[in-house]
Amino acid sequence: MPKWAMVIDLDKCTGCGDCMAACKLENNVAIVSPEQTEEGRVMFWMDMMSVYDGEYPHVKVKRIPKPCFHCDNPPCIKVCPVHATYINPEGLVGQIYHRCIGCRYCMAACPYTAKVFNWYEPEWAEEFKTCLNPDVSLRMKGVVEKCSFCAHRLQVVKEDADAEDREIMDGEYMPACSESCPADAIYFGDLENRESKVFKLSRSPRAFKELEGLGTEPKVIYLSKRE
């Protein structure tokens, strides 16, 4: 059974935000009005954290892309009252929108604040409606959503592999962020496959995980030489 994981090389990342845009388009994430954004209801499956070091004028800014960490021991699934968020055997933490009752307990329990909520019925501008991705269902008001590691792509990739009676190749299944990254800073692959790039990078001395001490065992691994 594969174990899908992401490696983000922060030394390569330029903080351009392309992954955020790609994710938003790929997954039909609703576009929130500026007023709502001001109130803290912005929706990003792939978010960008900005960490400021030092005092003006000697400020160092770190930009860190933050998707859902697809923990191996996810705190969110334990608290879900209706099995709307769960971890599947391949290590993907799924979110089933039609099951979700919108109690937002998973959001409160997630130490990475990776989940977003549809406070209103999601909206798109008229021009956007023609380019919604048909492979990803639209969400409705009142449900929680989050990065799925583009699991809809896995459905297709798996079927292709099964039709040709072979294993999924390394790099065949790739989320939109990883595919679009102009700096090639986001790697994606199977952590169980010792030949995969992700496996090798995860063993790098530069590798670290966010909030490792909590025991959530995230499957998004960062690479950085800096502290």
């Binding site: 109130e39 803290g40 209103y120 009142g142």
Partner: peptide, 15 residues
Amino acid sequence: YYGLGVTGMNQPVTW
């Protein structure tokens, strides 16, 4: 009718 947007809750204060 409108959704929970009519409340003051947001991210990260979800409750």
